[in-house]
Design a protein around this nucleic acid. Structure first.
Lengths: 341, 341
DNA sequence: CTGAAAGCGCTAACAC
DNA sequence: GTGTTAGCGCTTTCAG
């Protein structure tokens, strides 16, 4: 290209990269730019990377890209943030079930490609043991934490999300609120429960005494759990569900009992899986998981680390807000209030 | 590294790459390998790429990675296929709404990074106008076709999927089958309708006379459409729905009319969105979109082109099968048959 | 103001 | 059998 523009490679480099200390005449600048435009010339980022020891590539290793619809949002957030700062994402899917050695190999392959940093993402909030070689470049954990810190990490504020759900029900006038929780031993199970109880306490309701039923985190589990809670003594008028799938089961349980939503029973879900939440009738009011924001935050943080050259491990995982998404499944507990009033 | 093993770089290259024509003594081989292992040495793929003019990277530009839960499956398929042949995926999200010039810039950025080929994916089956610079490297279209051919492309066999759905209903004994179709002017709308009618004809039923109602492709649309078809004269005992969201609406319409699924009404969806299909009650029998397979096929085909050095445009888009996924929403039309028998 | 030289890490061709 | 040389496309001194 340089040769074709009748000028040296150095000059081309200077012009096209807007090198600050370069003094190039306006005419030469023009000549280079038009030549570049005509030839459709683009720099070879590989050669640049080799020379500068900066690839401008972020490795994204994600466990089971496919298993959750949220994956896309996270990738998108990371991609946008990366792109905004001139970086590109390189993908590497890892099987969640794979052994540490295999996942280490995945990281290694990214390392060989000279990625400047690595985003290590899981598809649901969990605590993991990262591969040993992850520390070789700056790295950030997405939707995951390690037992011993060591990496900056970003996870959803599960506690706050549960609080938002309970507050929405309380604000609508509900005083008897139940929780359909998951049975798995994952952070979200515990933190959403904690958020549920403590928010009730703060509202002057009895958190410890509020009905909580656990089941598998799908529609069938939600159906069964809702059945148990609705058929028990003094059933709640508002139901907070561990996730949207359980809420979907709760809808069915309510329908079978002749309870209209939201007139007779208000429901709040969690996850904001649009496919479910927007297609239920009425639309499900739910708490959104901040996948886009987590992806974007992580990429930004990673690039900061890369450009600062610091390993700077965050002492605590960063919590991102889980905002309430209102649709139509929450209303005042009208009948009950009138009946009791 | 070479220097550290007391041997030349050439020799290191020869043993680590198993170069066929290299004659290296077994002792030297050992020496190199142990040195590499101890240093945790991995080759610099960037330098290799610069030298060999082969990056081993596939660009994946996808319109709106995030908007559909299927995105992950497609990416996963492409990633697995690519990885199996030593390639890695580099991501570039493009806004579906963006102009051609913007999408051209996205492709350009991948080109600058010297990708060996490009996978251009849309998130639902459509006909598109690819950016002009896409032709600069081998490229394959995923879930999309161009008006004028030019690129190999892979799309779902919508017609075959619709046929499978109708056949499942017919095999269960249904002779009066209706179709809830989408209103949008996209290939799937037309091809599923064609598959619906022609399969009925082949079964000796009246394809042209079969009831078809169109509505928006979500639960509300499905609810409305199902209502119209069920309240009409001589309502069908089997319903084929354009997608799972519409089927979800049809479930509600059936419930409101006291029709049990599948006893009183059999339903088949399309898309196999597990979030919906597996969580409805009963589980929705539906037709799966082959996103994983499309991703894998496309990556494989692309690598073939790259390694063969041919542009070899496929004359026709490749159709991948949409298999039926049986859950619990199809049964024999028992009541009706008895009533009429 | 502009260009020549050196070198990022690697490999192909060719010596020795 | 093994090492030397050259060069992939770029950027960074440093000369002119």
């Amino acid at each position: 290209m340089a040769r074709a523009a009748g000028v040296s490679a150095t000059t081309v480099s200077h012009v096209l990269n807007d090198v600050s200390y370069a003094r190039v005449s306006p005419e030469t600048r023009e000549k280079v730019k038009t030549a570049a435009a005509e030839l459709g010339y683009g720099p070879n980022r590989l050669a640049q990377a080799l020379r500068s020891r900066r690839s401008g590539v972020l490795g994204l290793v994600s466990e089971d890209v496919a298993t959750t619809p949220h994956a896309g949002r996270m990738i998108l957030g990371a991609d946008q943030a990366a792109r905004a700062r001139g970086y590109t994402l390189m993908l590497s899917n890892t099987a969640g079930s794979a052994g540490t050695d295999l996942r280490e190999a995945d990281v290694e392959s990214l390392l060989e490609r000279q990625v400047d940093g690595i985003l290590y993402a899981t598809m649901y909030h969990r605590c993991l043991q990262p591969p040993a070689n992850l520390g070789k470049v700056p790295a950030v954990l997405v939707d995951a934490v390690t037992a011993d810190g060591g990496f900056p990490a970003v996870v959803p504020n599960e506690y706050g999300g549960a609080a938002a759900a309970v507050e929405a029900l309380h604000a609508a006038g509900h005083t008897r609120i139940g929780f359909l929780n998951n049975t798995e031993d994952v952070p979200s199970t515990h933190q959403r429960l904690k958020g549920f109880r403590e928010t009730l306490d703060r509202a002057g309701l009895d958190g410890a005494g509020a009905p909580v039923v656990t089941a598998s985190s799908d529609a069938d589990g939600g159906y069964a759990a809702a059945g148990r809670i609705l058929d028990g003594g003094n059933p709640p008028s508002g139901l907070f569900c561990y996730n949207d799938r359980m809420a979907m089961g709760a809808y069915r349980a309510a329908a079978e009992r002749g309870l209209a939503i939201p007139a007779d029973l208000s429901i709040v879900g969690f996850d904001d899986q649009e496919l479910i939440a927007a297609n239920l009738h009425p639309g499900l009011t739910t708490v959104a998981l901040p996948h886009y924001a987590m992806g974007a935050w992580a990429a930004d943080r990673l690039i900061d680390m890369i450009e600062a050259g610091t390993a700077g491990a965050e002492p605590e995982p960063v919590l991102l807000a889980c905002p309430l998404v209102s649709r139509g499944s929450v209303a005042a507990p009208a009948d009950r209030v009138r009946a009791q009033g």
